[in-house]
Design a protein around this nucleic acid. Structure first.
Length: 111
DNA sequence: TGAATGACTTCGG
DNA sequence: CCCGAAGCCATTC
């Protein structure tokens, strides 16, 4: 790590903060927006690195089907789910209910 | 330098 | 959508 924050991480952090309240997105969507659709895993890695930053709502980022895959990396087990439910997002079996409706595409930030 | 890992995605069945 | 397997890519050992 030559610098404290690479542009890739910085972008991921930036987009993560742009996720509206009560909305969710997928790693692939962010990766694709960043032009690294094949590096969806790196998005998650970036979140792990940003996990030190509380201003980044990593709990709003899930996999392509809306499963809270990263909850295991969170402080607790149900914390991620609780955070989403607190925002009005209903969670069923670690999955986001009405994921398609709650899904937020980074491209919408251009609206 | 090379092998292993993972907060994913896509494809075939 | 579910299941299994392969692909991708940056980070770590």
């Amino acid at each position: 790590m030559t610098t404290k924050s690479d542009n890739f991480f910085k972008k991921v952090h930036e987009i993560a903060r742009l996720i509206p309240y009560g909305r969710v997105t997928s790693y692939g969507a962010i990766a694709k927006y960043l032009g690294a659709a094949r590096s969806a895993r790196m998005v998650g890695w970036a979140m792990n690195s940003s996990g030190n930053d509380e201003s980044i709502p990593a709990h709003r980022v899930v996999n392509r089907i809306g499963v809270l895959t990263g909850k295991n990396h969170f402080q607790g087990t149900s914390l991620m789910q609780q955070l989403l439910e607190n925002e009005g997002v209903e969670i069923k079996d670690h999955k986001v209910v009405n994921f398609e409706k709650l899904f937020w595409d980074p491209s919408q930030q251009l609206n």
